[in-house]
């Protein structure tokens, strides 16, 4: 059985007298420990898809269709029970770690509180230990000391490691990462991608990676959805989509990617 089964997922925004769909009838399956890449350009609906799964859509957006996570229909779940899954069994990593961290609290406090929110009865002391362990797992050096530092005392890449540590503390079965390396320098990006791969090897967590970067997704995902204007134009294994793209849009997108090892004369554009 799949870990996550999505059928006919539609997200729409209410306009004055009609609905504007931003995700239209999405279907996909994600097996346990699988890595699914959702790629598309701006406005393709890829981020709305992840927010819809997490039940975090902005006000004014409606969600229809079915999202079944490990046998539970998420769309029918009351918010109280969704909160118990979100951040515990399904964790999320966003593009900008600084805006996801509270500047007034130490990173240790924030990791520990996120953990305690899902593990009632856990003492502060135990939670602090979990936080240090999680920071060690994402290779933050000197974690026992840095646990008392504030977000601004970390570099961008280190902050993203803190976010990943927070996501990992509850040992989630699914990690949804929305452009997790887009704001990072290329050498730091390589480290974070390596870290995500290592975490998946060690914990067996499934991953949904949302990105505009085809080279990044090719290094991480084993299955792909290519989205455009709210619809999936192509899906398949990464090998299929990259070596034999069926849809004209996917071909055009791949043609437009600048290659580091190659000069391709005139870049073709859609």
């Amino acid at each position: 059985m799949s870990l996550l089964t999505v059928r006919g997922l539609t997200v729409a925004f209410r306009a004055i007298n009609h609905d504007v769909p931003v995700v239209a009838g999405l279907d996909f399956d994600l097996p346990r420990s699988g890595a699914l890449g959702i790629v598309g350009e701006s406005g393709s609906g890829k981020s709305m898809t992840s927010l819809a799964i997490m039940g975090l859509l902005p006000a004014g957006a409606t969600r229809t269709g079915s999202i079944v996570f490990d046998g539970t229909e998420l769309t029918a779940l009351p918010e109280r029970r969704m909160r118990a899954i979100r951040g515990d069994r399904i964790a999320m990593i966003f593009q900008d770690p600084l805006s996801s961290l509270n500047p007034y609290y130490t990173v240790g406090t924030q990791i520990a509180e996120a953990y305690r929110a899902h593990r009632s009865g856990v003492s502060r002391k135990t939670a602090r230990k979990v936080a240090i362990e999680a920071m060690e797992r994402v290779h933050i050096r000197d974690a026992a000391r840095r646990v008392d530092d504030y977000p601004h005392q970390f570099s961008g890449g280190m902050r993203q490691r803190v976010m990943i540590a927070m996501a990992l503390s509850t040992e989630p079965e699914l990690i949804i990462a929305d452009e997790p390396t887009t704001a990072l320098d290329v050498t730091v990006q390589a480290q974070i991608l390596e870290l995500l791969a290592e975490v998946r090897r060690d914990t067996g967590a499934a991953l949904i990676l949302i990105t505009h970067d085809l080279a990044v997704v090719s290094e991480v995902a084993d299955h792909l959805l290519v989205m455009r204007r709210g619809e999936v134009v192509e899906s398949g294994t990464a090998a299929q989509v990259f070596s034999d793209p069926r849809h004209a849009y996917t071909r055009a997108l791949l043609d437009a990617v600048p290659r580091i090892d190659d000069t391709i004369g005139e870049l073709r554009s859609t």
Partner: peptide, 22 residues
């Protein structure tokens, strides 16, 4: 060298296959 090595790349075998298919 470090900078160039860090750049993500599409699998060269997939790239070659794609060019053949195209």
């Amino acid at each position: 060298k470090r900078l160039l090595a860090a750049v993500p790349r599409i699998n060269p075998e997939w790239e070659a296959a794609r060019r053949r298919n195209a």
